[in-house]
Structure formats: C-alpha cells, structure tokens
Amino acid sequence: MSAFLSIDNVSRLFGPNLTTGEKIAAKLGAKVETRSVRAVSDVSLTVARGETLGLVGESGCGKSTLGRLIAGILPPTAGTVMIDGAPVMENGAKVTTRVQTVFQDPFASLDPRMKVGDTVSEGPIAHGLTNKVKTKAYVAEWFERVGLDPVWVDRYPHQFSGGQRQRIAIARALAMQPDVLICDEPVASLDVSIQAQIINLFLELTRDLGLTTIFISHDLSVVQHVSDRVAVMYLGRIVELGPVAEVFGKPAHPYTDALFGSVPKLVLDADELVHFDTIEGEVPSPLSPPSGCYYHPRCPLATQACSDQQPLMQPVTERREVACHHFEEQIAKGLDKAV
C-alpha cells in the first residue's frame, strides 16, 4: 500500500509554560514539575490515496488533536506529517492547501459576520484558485456541489439551519481543492434526521473527488459506515489499527472490544432488555497516566507485564496492528464468544 499521507512519530505536548517564579526555582536547583500533557504520543500512520481512515476513541484520547496535527492547525512537538512527500508544516506554519478541515460545530466554524459566499471564496481568492472575475461562478459551482442554492451566497450564517451550515463548511473546505480532508466529528452536532444527508454527501464527494479522508468520530456506527480502515486511540496512543470490519468484528485489543461493547445498539429483535458490557472505572487523568500499558488498570486481561512494559504496535495480520501484550488471548476470547 503506497503512503499518500504519512504521519511519522508525531507527538504533541500541551501544558502551561513554567512561570517566572518556577523558572527561577528551577535555576536554583529546585525540582519543578512540568505539568505538560501528552495529548498525542508517538503516533505513526500511513494512509493511501483515496482511502478513508476512521479515528475513534473517547473524549480526551487525542483524536481531535491528532486531526489538528494532520490538518496543519497545530504544530507537532515532535515528528512530521507529509502529504505526497511534502511537509504540511514548516517552522510552525502551515505551508500547503492540500489538506482542509471540516469542523464539528457549524454554528461555531462559520464567521457570523461574513456572508457565506465570501466565507467560501476568500481562501480560493487568497491562494489564486479563482480570481475576482470568476469568483461568483466558482462559489456557485461549490454551492451546487454540496446541495445549496447559489442564490444564498449573500446571506449570513444565522439564516441557515445546522445541516445547511455544515454544507457551507464543507463547500469552504472543498473549494480549496484539497487532496486530504480532515472531518472532525462532522455530524455530531447535527439533528439525527440531518446526519444521514451529510454522511451521504461525504460519501458522494470523497468518492467523486478522490479525497483521502481522516474521519474523526466518537460514533462508532458512523465510522464503521464511512471508513475503510480504523485507528482506535486511548490516552494519546493508537492501540489498534486495521480494516474496519476486522477491527470491529474481531477486536485484537481489549479496549476496542470493551468500547464496541458499551455502545448502545438499536435493539429490534429482543422484547427483553439487553445486557451492556460495561468497562470498569474511568479513563485515567492524562496528567498522570498509568505505567506500562495505559489501559491495564481497566483491562480484564492485564498481567504484571502490562504494568511494567508499554506494548508497542505489532502486526496481527498483514493489514492489522495492535499494541497489546495479550492480543492473541483477546482474539481467542472473541472467537469463544462468537461460538
């Protein structure tokens, strides 16, 4: 599989800088704690051209931060992101238009004081993808492409519904003619009856335009529907990666298994109430993550090795990778359950 988008050992730390007092204390030899959080920790991934990679995990797992690192919104603390061999960022600034983002909340991601037509056209004008003369036709073309009436270009965002705004946000991203699209929870804040419209629009556009897509969502059923492969994140690390049907069908990581088990599923054929597989406990604070495997305090398969040593990503099959000391056990357990 050729790597069109490659993410190499990317990490991102967040944290308050030391205060002047602490800096002085540190110089005088006192032990000063750095309170930085590793939001994304040493992530490596490759995505083929035209592929859709789903990124799932609970809040605080670093999936949105990873999305922003790939989109060139945040500079990584370490590592590089390359599209077709060219870096996305240089010296902390984004140097390409080939990756664009669709944000979660279309009520926040559109400038409330700008006409929606201008919101769509300003990027292309700034980067010479269109000029003042052709702008109107160019914007109209993208409005039609996302299912909006071009006569609406002079309206303001507050005059549109949530679904329409998300279409405008999609038009803004696509009008930059990107190769890679980052979708950060694009349907999470939309009404249920509107979600299907936007998902269909995504499927259609990514296929027609041959886009390489990173689809971030906490909704596993949406990810399952749109993605070719999926990466599961836990506390800033990728714990499992592989084709979506295989990962969700036969999880190799106990966390994937538990996450999938705790998603409420639509119960149609049972008159009895369903049983939930719940994960014990809560996600630990990223300020003081556990030793070894971050998941071991909640993991039913955990052994001494799991608290001593961090498991690295290793191949399960040709296209699958997992970071777990006991993945064979987990797969066997899954097969037992199926039987």
């Binding site: 060139g72 919104i73 238009t97």
Partner: peptide
Amino acid sequence: DYIEAAVATPLSARLVVLRHLLPN
C-alpha cells in the same frame, strides 16, 4: 472555530485579523 478554520486554510495573519478577528 471560525478563526481556527481561517488559520487552517491557511490565510495570512493580516487577513485573519482584518477580515475575521476585528469585525467580531
């Protein structure tokens, strides 16, 4: 988010400030 979206396009700092930040 809309400022982040403008920065992510990317637009120059001048455009982000004059067209988005200042009016808001």
